[in-house]
């Protein structure tokens, strides 16, 4: 079985769909999803991407779309506790899943320690990529509570930022690790 084009090349041409009517069988499917602790039920087309589902069905627009092919990480959310590209997931395939988006990190309460660390370190400028970075950091520090800077750099390859040059983000993750450890120590 062959894929038509080499994936790594940017396709110069928009490829057709072999004359098929592309909107055949758009029957909507019911999806149940728990997002930021709240249960939702929606009927959507199978092709509806999770990113669009969150943004345009649930109006959780904090999850941003940057590249729509899994490279930039702006649309990163937690899917059953793990970071995933919401532009590479179909909402229907996540029936029953638990999702955390940036809106769910702290709700309207005080900033989460990771958010606070980003604020203190000036780890964001335009802020468009930031939601993805926050969720990557939360997953990473959950797995590695006391990372060194090289481990942080490796973890941050999950996401792209065009404004900051990354240095302050690395500082922020390091600081966030300390904040979370201190908080864990209290508890």
């Amino acid at each position: 079985m062959t894929l038509i084009l080499r994936a790594r090349f940017f396709p110069p041409l928009r490829c057709g769909t072999d004359g098929e009517d592309p909107v055949m069988s758009p029957e909507k499917i019911t999806v149940r999803m728990t997002v930021n602790g709240k249960a939702y039920v929606r009927d959507v087309e199978p092709r509806y991407l999770l990113a669009d589902f969150l943004r345009h069905e649930l109006y959780l627009t904090g999850t941003h779309i940057g590249c729509e092919h899994g490279v930039c990480g702006a649309c990163t959310v937690l899917i059953n506790g793990k970071t995933g590209r919401s532009c590479l997931q179909f909402a229907v395939a996540l029936d029953g899943a638990e999702i955390t988006t940036v809106e769910g990190i702290a709700g309207d309460g005080p900033l989460h320690p990771v958010q606070e660390a980003f604020h203190q370190a000036h780890a964001l400028q335009c802020g468009y990529c930031t939601p993805g970075f926050l969720l990557t950091t939360i997953e990473f520090l959950g797995q590695n509570p006391d990372p060194d800077r090289d481990e942080i750099r490796q973890a941050l390859t999950n996401n792209m930022c065009r404004c900051t040059g990354y240095l302050n983000i690395i500082d922020a993750v390091e600081d966030a690790a300390g904040r979370l450890r201190a908080k864990g120590g209290e508890a």
Partner: peptide
């Protein structure tokens, strides 16, 4: 921005 509440164009 940190809470995902900024409104970019598509938001």
């Amino acid at each position: 921005l940190l809470r995902g509440k900024a409104q970019f164009l598509d938001d």
